[in-house]
């Protein structure tokens, strides 16, 4: 099966501090991968490298056949194909939810306004907040905002979705509504890379689990095997602490 994301020997430094060490990772289309690990282990940095919100200094990252390099054109092309959901939602507070969702399709994909709004409404329906379309982000609850952010990313009709701790900034009772949307998305066949501590979610949807520590991939295993029979001691320790 051809790979949609390939990372070969990726290294990254913040000044002298090395955050990513020799990362190799391949993701096939429609695969769902959950990355976990202690804070500061480089998991956020890793997925932010995939759409070049962070620059890597060594190695190759190839997304959907395009290599990420200095070329601004390539970067923008890849970003339009890769949706990202942030921990802090990062909705645009000066625009309504509908405008948040239709803005990029109109200006980046050059769709007519009417069509873009139709797509936006469909995606808002999918995350069940189409009744909030005309409100501003500040008027929504955290869970609704995060679902709106997912809808906004989906409006670009991405091939890959990256989730950077999407539920970490939410109140406990709102986590479920966001996870439900993500499970639904996974079942729809989206390629997903998710950084999260929600192990229930991971067990339900992930094909592979990746455990990172100190900038390295310590373990990569099928989900069932990862939870039932982790190989490294570091993984065992981590799992014993969070499960």
């Amino acid at each position: 099966m051809s790979k949609i994301i390939e990372l070969k020997n990726v290294n990254k430094w913040f000044d002298k501090f090395q955050v990513l060490k020799d990362i190799d990772l391949e993701v096939a289309p429609q695969e769902k991968i959950v990355i976990c690990g202690p804070s500061g282990s480089g998991k956020s940095t890793l997925i932010r490298c995939i759409n070049r919100l962070e620059e890597h200094q060594k190695g190759n990252i190839i997304v959907d056949g395009t290599e990420l390099s200095e070329s601004t054109k390539n970067i923008e092309k890849i970003r339009a194909e890769v949706g990202m959901v942030f921990q802090q939602f990062n909705l645009f507070p000066h625009l309504s939810i509908l405008e948040n969702c239709s803005l990029a399709p109109i200006w980046v994909k050059k769709l007519p306004k009417k069509q873009a709004e139709e797509i936006a409404m469909n995606n808002l329906k999918r995350v069940q907040i189409d009744d909030q379309a005309l409100k501003f982000p500040g008027q929504l609850s955290g869970g609704q905002q995060q679902r709106a952010a997912i809808a906004r990313a989906l409006c670009m009709e991405p091939k890959i979705m990256l989730f950077d701790e999407p539920t970490s900034a939410l109140d406990p009772e709102m986590i479920k509504e966001v996870l439900d949307v993500m499970v639904d998305l996974a079942k729809g066949g989206m390629t997903m890379i998710v950084v999260t501590h929600e192990m229930g979610f991971a067990k339900e949807v992930a094909d592979y689990m990746i455990f990172m520590d100190e900038g390295k991939i310590v373990e990569r295993a099928k989900t069932k095997e990862f939870f039932e029979n982790p190989k490294s001691d570091r993984t065992k320790l981590f799992l014993s602490q969070i499960l």
């Binding site: 919100l53 970003r79 942030f86 952010a149 670009m156």
Partner: peptide, 15 residues
């Protein structure tokens, strides 16, 4: 402005 606004705009493919 929070850095997240820049990142969100970039991640949607805006130049």
């Amino acid at each position: 402005l929070p850095k997240g606004q820049y990142e969100a705009a970039k991640s949607l493919g805006m130049g």
